Simulated assay, not measured.
Amino acid sequence: MKTRLLLIAAILATALMPVSASAEPALTVGVAYDIGGRGDRSFNDASHAGLEKAQKQFDFELVPVVTDGSSADREKRIRSLIAKNCDPIIAIGSGYSPTLQALAVEYPSTHFAIINDASVAALNVTSVIFADNQGAFLAGFSSAQLSKSGKVAMIANPDQADIYKDGFSAGVAAAKRKVIPIVKYVSGSYSLATTQVLDAGADIVYVTTQGSDSEILKVIASRGAKKKGAPIGMINVEPDQFITITNSTKRFLLATVIKRVDKAMYDIVALSLAKRQYLDILDENAGIYGRRYGITGGGIELTVRSNSLLRLSNSINAAAAIAEKIPA
């Protein structure tokens, strides 16, 4: 009996002992946010959303830093994550590419990833990009389906000619309606460019520039409020752009092409825990590897906001099946 009592006492003593701190996380993930950090309503926020989802699923420590945008500060921020033994280190935005190109060589055993860039040639750098052509195809197809004037437009940066040709224009043609696509490359005033395409007869405008879309939407809403007959509207891209919508302007935002940056961030963490990384060939000659997210697998999505487009869901889904075959 005495032995049994001693055994019970020992068990109780063990149960009442203070619980030691939980085991160290299996992974320490470093994230280098771009200028402004969280709250930018763009790539930083989309990236954080993916990490937040990953934290609910996996056990890992997250170490965030934010750059002021200078080259020296970007290097300082990445080095601080390396010093804290973060692996992987995920950089948000192409501004980090020169820094990663240098540090990937200096630290070959550290795994890096960069979001929305494919210019760093190193096996230990995962480049994550999105199939802009596929999203533009859906926007072009949807624009042509809605157009009443017979003209639709894309407002783009000067370096986005391929997105217009292989994406937006091809999508317009796939709609098989008598609709003419217009492109306006802009490096100055977005409101002026918007006015010009509307004056040229376009009634649906697809915007692929980066930054705020509020100026463009304001011009479209102002014109739409005065216009009699067929409505006009806009399709935008997230998280490349952010927009302030009011009760008077929301009806003019017809749809949004969404790059699932959150999904990419979640996937990077999941792969890192499995001791893997994306090594798809993005540019064989340059030696650039990573992952291009497209419609297949849900990396590119179209969020429809217009009731007129909602009624065309079957046609849009059929167009998506075509778009996902477009090489990016």
Rank of each mutant, 00 (worst) to 15 (best):
E215T: 15
I8L: 14
Y190G: 04
Q210E: 11
Y190D: 10
K84R: 15
A139Q: 07
S47Y: 03
A144K: 01
G50W: 00
L16E: 02
E75P: 07
E61C: 08
Y185C: 06
D34M: 11
A161L: 08
Y190H: 09
N157T: 11
A270T: 04
A161W: 02
L273N: 08
K2Y: 11
L192K: 14
S80R: 14
S212I: 06
G290Q: 02
R38T: 13
N247I: 06
A15P: 02
I326L: 10
K228T: 14
A102F: 03
A46Q: 03
P231I: 12
S222E: 15
F130Y: 15
L198M: 15
S70L: 11
S169Y: 07
V128D: 00
D162E: 10
R77Y: 09
L6E: 09
N236A: 12
L279S: 13
I82E: 06
H48W: 10
I326A: 03
T110E: 00
P158M: 07
I82V: 15
M265P: 05
R260H: 06
A175M: 08
G150K: 01
Y96W: 11
R79Y: 09
V219D: 00
L217E: 01
I220H: 00
A174K: 06
G167V: 10
I115D: 00
N157S: 14
G201F: 04
P18R: 01
R41T: 03
G171T: 05
L62M: 09
H111I: 06
I11M: 14
A286G: 00
V304L: 14
K275Q: 08
K228M: 12
S315W: 05
Y164I: 04
M154K: 10
I90Y: 05
N285G: 13
S191A: 14
F168P: 04
F242E: 06
F141N: 09
I268T: 08
Q101W: 06
P239G: 09
